[in-house]
Design a protein around this nucleic acid. Structure first.
Lengths: 224, 224
DNA sequence: TCGTACATCGTACGTCGTACGCTGTACTAC
DNA sequence: GTAGTACAGCGTACGACGTACGATGTACGA
């Protein structure tokens, strides 16, 4: 086999850190983070388990890299619009991405050092806020508030046991309400009934709170 | 050994579901959720590993029960004050509790069925909002928004690599700034410098966003 | 006295992360 | 050519994990 052929094969089937991490994300999406083991990941890549350690120092590093891939998927706030539209766009994108990779939220708690994509993202968001007229301190406040809302919403959404409005209606009748004696939980019964009747879309719920927060932040900036 | 002695011993040293779960929480607080294994937990209780399975069907059930213990620790919104004070109190309590048990936040993503303490908590919060004049729909919105903020803040706080303002200053100088070339991350540099200079208290940061959210929710209720 | 339910445990199986060392190949220097 | 070096990958083995299974001893009602 010539060197050229070798290189060809390598770029088709050979491993690389990027390929390893991307396949890990796919595996976690399919099977959850508990289903992601080095052996299974290696299997999905057609390689031996220990081969992965040439590209990744440890499973911890792999998880860090996976989180950063997720951050790469999130849209940066566009520069050409007003700050509220820009923040809304990136927040909506973040929610969508986190909903596609529910394992990511649960992983963040334990990973303490942000990756490059994460840093780029924070820089872009901070830049957008500062250019919109927020002081350094207010931009920090806004950053915490917006990120808290986005992450917290994604966390709650990930722990919902249903994906569609129909499933919600089914589960409300079949699982929730029987667990909730009306005399002990009158208000939850009221809510469950109303939600099951009205249908429910997490994306709309997200927008409601998001716009409320954006509007509340508006008066805190110094108009440019 | 008489029956009375036996019972005595049992209530002193014997196991029970509650004791198992409480010790599990302590172990997770000390060593993190990765350090919590059935064998180590059994060791801490002076028992054999398999003995735990008499009280807990599986490790998953144990984790569910641990989460519910955490919810038990969170103060319910007091009934005798205005709704904003009540919500502020329970939110502050929730942040404090989640900061004491950082593993809890990361666990929530994977646990989909709420325990009894969780349900009681939700009921009390919803009751408070409904009594304050929020419609069923608005109470749902407010619930999502407040919980998202609290959980998201706790999640971010848990992934901070420092605990005190001094540590922040140290890490800013020693770790963050060297990672952030000023030409690529001008705004993050600006923020890091300002924060390191001003000191930083997560509890204050939390209150800022919380009060902003509460104020934004105020006009959405029908005054009582 | 005996049967049954309770509470506890030892052993064993399959899986996990990964330390260690071995392979074979490409490339460089002589 | 050829020896040396770096690269890329793998096989094996070790200790720890969750837990299925069955054995043990004890308390207590019949």
């Amino acid at each position: 086999m010539s060197a050229r052929e070798r290189r060809q094969v390598a770029s088709d089937a050979g491993l690389s850190k990027k390929r390893v991490v991307i396949e890990a994300v796919r595996l976690a999406d399919r099977e959850g983070v508990d289903g992601l083991s080095m052996r299974r990941l290696a299997g999905a890549l057609g390689a031996g388990a220990m081969s992965l350690y040439y590209y990744v120092a440890s499973k911890e590093e792999l998880l860090d890299a996976m989180i950063d891939i997720v951050f790469e998927e999130i849209e940066l706030p566009p520069e050409e619009t007003d700050w509220q539209s820009a923040m809304r766009r990136r927040a909506v994108s973040a929610r969508r991405v986190l909903a596609c990779h529910p394992w990511a939220i649960g992983l963040m708690e334990s990973r303490t050092s942000p990756g490059p994509a994460n840093l780029r993202h924070r820089e872009a968001v901070t830049a957008c806020l500062r250019r919109a007229g927020f002081s350094v301190l207010m931009a920090t406040h806004a950053n915490w508030l917006l990120d808290s809302y986005v992450y917290g919403f994604a966390l709650q959404e990930a722990s919902l046991p249903f994906d569609t409005a129909d499933e919600l209606a089914d589960m409300t009748e079949g699982v929730f309400l029987p667990q909730l004696p009306p005399d002990e939980f009158p208000y939850l019964n009221e809510s469950a009934a109303a939600l099951a009747a009205a249908g429910y879309d997490p994306a709309e719920e997200f927008i409601f709170g998001l716009d409320l927060v954006l509007a509340a932040l508006e008066p805190l900036r110094v108009p440019t």
